[in-house]
Design a protein around this nucleic acid. Structure first.
Lengths: 152, 152
DNA sequence: TAAAAATGTTAGGATAACCTAACATGAATA
DNA sequence: TATTCATGTTAGGTTATCCTAACATTTTTA
């Protein structure tokens, strides 16, 4: 009876973006999410319907989008992973912020917990506290045409 | 007129497995690929059809599968990335071989060239030549029920 | 060599994640 | 307030990647 399907990478991306947007502005709307992810609005609507089913967001018809407690926890987790990766890529490997941002987005969902734990330990040993420095996702778009988006 | 679609992550996985299998045995067959990837044979057939279209493999009806020159180059590239990642994860981060194997598989297709270059430089600095130590994919299955496969 | 087993293929479906076009609603404004 | 415009939604597709069931071919073996 409960939702059986997992929270896919794609859905995690939506949660992450909703979290970021809600830190930037009072209310988060479908259009904001669509713009940020560079995805058509109907696709966003469809994804939001799934997130609602799973109890991760709340949204009334034509209303703004909000994370539930559980949705917030889930989004924070992904965002934390994102920051760990971003910190590692930029500060240890010296990857450019643009590439690091994109790469972090791509792999943040996939890596095992084990690898994440080891990565965090490694960063601590190197006295890198990168994972505490939160960055806003919007920085990405501001950094020029990095083609971080999807749509053709 | 030429093949327009890209060689997706999934197709790269097939090429990689074909490369590995062809180093292990005289001929590579549909069943071998299906077993290794834990994917149903019809799915393999379908993927092989696409790889043929792109000129990356050769296969006659009911016959064995072979990489073309281009297919071989493509497979080698992915396999090299796999090994770089595996080396980094196990030797720098201390991740277990099982988790490293799975994680490498998941992200080998996604990371930017920039990140790969930096990663290779980093490994060189650390005197780690991990990317030269080729491992056979089959090691994975031998390492117990790591659930590296896909099928339910 | 005929039957059985293994292997390869075709046909038809499902699901996730996108899309465009058309329509509905709500907010801004002339 | 009537119109316009931004925003949200529905309906109906498309593509990639997987699946099962049924069938065809090849290989093995009794």
């Amino acid at each position: 009876m409960t939702e059986l399907r997992p929270v896919t990478s794609s859905l995690q991306d939506y949660l992450e973006v909703i979290l970021n947007l809600s830190e930037e502005k009072k209310v988060v709307r479908v259009t904001d999410i669509a713009d940020r992810l560079d995805i058509a609005k109907p696709s966003v609507i469809q994804a939001l319907a799934l997130l609602k089913e799973k109890g991760l967001i709340r949204q009334n018809r034509y209303g703004p989008v909000e994370l539930t407690e559980e949705g917030y926890r889930c989004a924070e987790k992904v965002w934390h992973r994102h920051n760990v990766l971003f910190g590692f890529l930029t500060q240890i490997l010296g990857v450019s912020p643009q590439a690091a941002e994109e790469d972090a987005c791509l792999i943040e969902h996939d890596l095992s917990s084990e690898t994440f734990e080891k990565l965090i330990s490694f960063l601590k040993e190197q006295k890198i506290e990168a994972h505490y420095q939160k960055r806003k996702r919007c920085d990405l778009k501001a950094q020029g045409p990095g083609n971080g988006g999807r749509k053709k």
